[in-house]
Amino acid sequence: MKNPPFVYHQAHSLSEAIELLATYGEDGKVLAGGQSLLPTMALRLGPPEHVIDISAVPDLDTIGLDADGGVSLGALVRHAEAERSDDVRRLAPLISEAMPHVGHRAIRTRGTVVGSIAHADPAAEMPAVCLATGATMIAASSQGERTIPAAEFFDGYLTTALRPDELLTHVKFPAWSAQSGGAVVEVSRRHGDYALAGLACRVDLSGDAVTDAALAFFGVDSTPVRVPEAEAALVGKPPTAEAFAEAASIVSTTLTPTADIHGSTNYRRHLAGVLTTRGLKTAASRIGVSA
């Protein structure tokens, strides 16, 4: 179980990285933290011919405070750094909620948040957090920089809207409102495993009523998915147990998760409903509402 041969490129600047991707991106993979890439290489599952190591690229390891009150995570920010960051906890609390669920400490010290998003494992937490927060992907290539809304980013199982020549340099999380409550909840068979089903959710309140809601599920489909019908059912209503139960019921009837050896379709569907109730309750409690 040893890595297959590849051409190893180490980029020392963003422009070098982009140049390498322009040349080798089609048959290449970006190496940042490596916590997703290395296991697939060891198993020789569709190994890349070129590995482009960006760990020496300067300025990608920063947690940036954006003018609009949001935060931007560079491609080399490790999970453990995001987990420890007070700025992240304050400005993008859903990321902080997600971090303890990501693997184990020795994975989080190496793995990068942006790498996890680019890898787009449908059972991973961060892609769903991107959906729930309305994050923006910033991709650089030799043709310049473009932004991709999270809602348009996740195309399918382990595939995204990124072109082979593009590097996901940053992910920008918008300002988190004081009226927003969020939670990341999941159930896995063992602690630290990929979730059987999970939910990154956000509820915005104004006065007594929900003004907006986001329910982004992971582990239930080939990409992270939102359930707009259930979100819509919450809007305009007070954040009560009844309202959450109604949303949960819509979730359970709307989703058709795929079965695998760890859980059936019906199980995951049921679990998504349970997580809806649990997640919304926790999210509401974050802004002082007990439902």
Partner: peptide, 21 residues
């Protein structure tokens, strides 16, 4: 007895159609 089996036994969920799990 993985979680799916537990909830099927408890009558909380039905088995998937065409599944022997």
């Amino acid at each position: 007895l993985p979680p799916t089996t537990i909830l099927e036994m408890a009558g909380v969920i039905d088995p998937d159609p065409n599944s022997d799990r």
